[in-house]
């Protein structure tokens, strides 16, 4: 439950922080911190324009997309607490739930019959689907290390793991950040600032959506961002041992509650840090050439395979 609330809050603030970082770094005044939320409210109140070419698919796709993200959200845990629904193999469900949203967004873009949107859908489909193996192998390696197949238990074991496993967490954090960037169509795969339809990926795919639907999609995308942030943050929200010892000196304080407060603080801090990192990296980075993108994505898979072998080494399995 906590993860749900936290992710909802961070989702609303995340893009704001990101944009603020970018405008500060480029010396602009830029939009305000809460502009994203204002935009969302405006979109939810605006009327819609539908193309006459479109069919029923175009109408239901944004709802399915949003619903799929909500479903993915439900299995994401917070620190060592369960998500709302947690079961063995829930991360498989997580990926496939997100995939069903992608499926509908892609066909809704094709529904408009616009060549631009077909192009955007095609690119987004290819990128976000090629990235799936990286995610599977990453979480698969951790599930091998922890001996469990649900998100919550994987994180729980990682927090009581050794220093070597923390080292892996750092690499995994890097890969997860990159996967998050690709899944949400940010640099270096896609540049949300671009103004030419031919070079867009995600923006051009949702070109014909308007009003409430566009609001749903925008909110869904920031939720997805926050979900990936939460997946990264969960690796690191374990408070340092010294701090725990220090707290336990004060018996009058409710230990569990305080620990939770610290964890929430760390979580928000990491999410904030992530948004700033994304902002900074986007300010100083150019997008990759379109045909090099698959290479970047396959590199991520390669790094995940390295993590897999790292796990094998930690578990001392290289004895034939």
């Amino acid at each position: 439950m906590i993860s749900l609330i936290l992710i909802l809050i961070t989702a609303l603030l995340f893009i704001g922080v990101l944009n603020r970082t970018r405008s500060l770094l480029s010396g602009r005044k830029g939009p305000g911190f809460l502009q994203v939320i204002k935009d969302l409210f405006r979109m939810f109140r605006k009327g819609s324009t539908f193309s006459t070419t479109t069919s029923m698919i175009f109408q239901i796709a944004p709802s399915v997309y949003f619903g799929s993200i909500i479903m993915a959200l439900l299995v994401v845990p917070f620190a060592d607490q369960e998500g709302i629904l947690s079961f063995e193999g829930d991360f498989i469900f997580f990926i496939y739930a997100l995939a069903i949203g992608k499926f509908f967004m892609i066909i809704s873009a094709l529904d408009t019959g616009s060549p631009f949107e077909g192009m955007g859908a095609n690119r987004e489909a290819l990128y976000s689907l090629l990235v799936e193996p990286a995610f599977f192998i990453l979480i698969g390696s951790f599930s091998m290390l922890s001996g469990n197949t649900s998100f919550y238990k994987i994180y729980q074991t990682m927090h009581f793991g050794s220093y070597e496993s923390y080292l892996l967490c750092v690499v995994a954090g890097f890969v997860l950040i990159q996967i998050g960037m690709i899944e949400n169509s940010r640099l270096p795969i896609d540049d949300p600032k671009t103004h030419l339809e031919l070079t867009m990926v995600h923006e051009v795919m949702i070109l014909d959506n308007s009003g409430f639907d566009l609001g749903l999609i925008t909110l869904g995308t920031s939720l997805k961002f926050a979900i990936y942030g939460a997946l990264v943050a969960n690796f690191f929200v374990e408070p340092p041992h010294a701090l725990i010892v220090y707290i336990q000196q004060f018996p009058q304080v409710d230990f569990k509650l305080l620990l939770l407060a610290i964890q929430i603080g760390m979580f928000m801090g990491i999410q904030f840090l992530w948004a700033v990192t994304v902002g900074v990296s986007e300010s100083f980075r150019a997008r990759a050439r379109m045909n090099r993108n698959p290479l970047i994505i396959f590199t991520l898979t390669a790094i995940s395979i390295l993590i897999f072998f790292g796990v094998l080494i930690i578990m001392k399995k290289f004895q034939l």
Binding site: R45, S48, T49, S51, T53, F212
Partner: peptide
């Protein structure tokens, strides 16, 4: 979840008004 979101969305869209036109 999808059905609930879709119903809410349809109500909101109807309330906000719909225009139709060619694909952009």
């Amino acid at each position: 979840v999808v059905i609930v979101i879709y119903i809410l969305r349809t109500l909101a869209v109807k309330k906000n008004g719909i225009t139709e036109g060619p694909t952009w």
